[in-house]
């Protein structure tokens, strides 16, 4: 009798393992950091692309009801596609769009904006990429929608789509 119970437990144990592995197959094995909404946007100081003046992110955010911070680079291919979407957004609304230029050369960034337009009210630079890391970003492009208290309302990883834009427009109304 003891032997039977032991084997039964053994079978149940392996069935459990089987089920876990089976379910595990559906999970993506690539990790994306969880979208932590309602976290606070970390303050940073940087230089403006054109004027070279130093700005504090807090000042910019506090003075606007909503701010959209877009991390971009001239060498990033999806950023080119996203740029027209941003241009539309800047024309349709009066949302304060701030650019964070990631690991880029000033000349290339300026050329990019000349070619595709400038939707940004201000562009701060992140030459080493460490400001982006302190914000919790890890790639380009990434976009944050903030309120005036620096709370992150929405975070978008990857280029912005039309759907994202509609969502943003709804929120800022």
């Amino acid at each position: 009798m003891k032997k039977n119970i032991f084997y039964l437990i053994l079978l149940l144990f392996f069935t459990f393992i089987f089920t876990v592995f089976y379910k595990g197959l559906d999970k993506p094995n690539f990790y994306t950091p969880k979208e932590v909404n309602n976290k606070n946007f970390e303050e940073f100081t940087s230089f403006e692309l054109f004027s070279n003046k130093q700005f504090d992110s807090q000042d910019i955010i506090e003075n606007n009801k909503f701010t959209l911070v877009n991390i971009w680079s001239s060498w990033c291919v999806p950023c080119r596609q996203e740029h027209s979407v941003l241009m539309n957004l800047s024309k349709k609304t009066d949302l304060n769009i701030v650019g964070l230029n990631y690991k880029d050369k000033k000349n290339n960034a300026i050329k990019f904006l000349k070619e595709l337009g400038n939707p940004f009210s201000k562009i701060l630079i992140d030459p080493d990429g460490i400001i982006s890391i302190s914000l919790g970003a890890y790639g380009v492009p990434e976009t944050f929608l903030l309120n005036n208290k620096s709370k992150i309302i929405k975070k978008y990883i990857g280029p912005l789509t039309e759907n994202n834009i509609s969502e943003i427009i709804k929120i800022i109304k």
Binding site: F30, Y31, P33, K103, D128, G129, I130, S132, I133, S134, Y138, G139, V140
Partner: peptide, 26 residues
Amino acid sequence: CLICQGQSVYDSQSDFAISMKILIDN
């Protein structure tokens, strides 16, 4: 490394890893 997920930040040469190393240094 978040970009090359099989590697450590030390080993990886991705932008993220390079920026990360500067951040850690700071």
